[in-house]
Amino acid sequence: MGNFKSILKKTLSNPSKRGCLKSEPESQILIDEKPNYYLSNRGDENIDRQHFNHFFRKHIYGNNFSAPIGEKLAQGGCKVLDIGCGPGTWLLDLAHKYRNSKFVGVDIEPTVYPNEIKPGNLNFCEADILNGLPFPDNEFDFVHQEIMALIIKADQWNFVISEIVRVTKPGGFIELVEYIAPNNNGPILSKVYQTHYDLCLKRGVDTNLIPKLDTIMKSHNDITEVNRDEKTFIIGPNGGRVGITILDIIISFITSEIATEDISSQEGINKEEHKNRFKNLKEESKTTNPKLKLCRFWTQKNC
């Protein structure tokens, strides 16, 4: 994986824009108003974190998706969209495997995805799902969106899902992937997650909606049933290698530069105090066994 990441990082310093399937002026209206989000796409550290998270989630499930689209991808002629693709790790993984299918990634930040060293069946373009997708109706066989619940506001979910459904072909598949906040937390983890929740609410983001995404999806036309593929694992040493890995991911998330600034300001503590308390988080998790869920919500658009 090291060589793969090295190649990706070299391409990020010299991006070139590529058009989407259909260009609409309104998709650019808010392009300079980046969301105030803990994990900016910018910087090697954050890009590496996203690469690592992709392979972690793939390890947890043993595959890249839960929707039954694999056979069609292998046959070829399948068209796939990834929304909020970041550095494009999920797409690169699939595009290399399924050479006869086509892949498109969209992200609000065009400087993070590779436009030079990539398979010929993969393209990227700059777009913001919150302003609408720049594609015609019924365009894609599979539409994928991963870890966007900290960006999408409570009153934006219906629009986002409507757009996803719109660009999906009848009979095509949709999959949303999100983490669900842990339970059985000790005092350190409880405090930081409560602060994180409060900060999200200030931006209009309600993380309590994440476990209810299947219900929100089912409320839309052309969707009748939503499946949940849910994985639960223990955070910390009692969860084995997976538990230690996810603990490292959580700590890297909540001690990133942006998160440290926001959380320490919200709690009225200095940045060093914020970072130092997590030195004891591993010991705390040994006695509390906090459990985290990763969930894939997938459905098929009605024919």
Rank of each mutant, 00 (worst) to 15 (best):
N227W: 14
F233K: 09
K202L: 10
K191W: 06
Y197I: 13
T245Q: 11
L294Y: 15
P290S: 07
N289T: 11
E284P: 01
N184L: 05
N270K: 05
E283I: 09
I180A: 09
N208I: 14
T245D: 09
Q266M: 13
G243K: 04
K293H: 06
E272D: 13
N185E: 13
S252D: 08
G240N: 01
K293Q: 08
G186H: 05
N184H: 09
P237D: 00
V226S: 08
D262R: 15
P182D: 05
L189Q: 10
I254N: 04
C295K: 07
G240S: 06
N270R: 06
V192P: 06
F253M: 11
Q194L: 11
L294T: 12
D229H: 08
E178Y: 04
I235C: 01
K275N: 03
E230H: 08
S190E: 10
E225V: 13
G268S: 08
I234F: 04
K191C: 11
T260E: 03
I254P: 05
K202S: 06
V177Y: 09
I254M: 12
T195M: 09
L209S: 07
A259V: 07
K202E: 15
G243I: 01
D198R: 09
D206T: 02
T245S: 12
P290V: 03
K271P: 07
I210R: 12
V226H: 04
G204D: 00
K231V: 05
K218E: 08
R277P: 09
H274T: 02
N289Q: 11
F233M: 12
V205G: 01
K286P: 03
R228P: 02
N280E: 15
N221C: 11
R296H: 11
Q194I: 10
L189M: 10
Y193I: 11
N185P: 06
I258A: 15
K282E: 13
L247T: 02
L213W: 02
D222N: 14
R296S: 08
T195G: 11
S219I: 01
T287L: 14
D198Y: 05
I210G: 08
I244K: 14
G204E: 00
I234L: 05
K218H: 09
N185Q: 14
Y179K: 13
I246R: 03
H196Q: 13
D222Y: 11
K275W: 04
K231Y: 07
I216N: 00
K271F: 08
N227F: 14
E178D: 06
V242M: 05
K202V: 07
N276D: 15
K271W: 10
G243D: 00
V226I: 07
I235W: 00
H274W: 11
N270Y: 05
A259F: 06
H274Q: 10
L189R: 10
N289W: 12
T224Q: 15
G186A: 04
N289G: 09
L292A: 05
S285D: 07
I244M: 13
L199K: 02
F253Q: 12
K212L: 15
D222F: 14
L294Q: 10
T207V: 14
L292I: 12
R277F: 12
I223M: 00
E178H: 05
I188C: 06
L209D: 01
L189V: 12
I258F: 14
I263V: 04
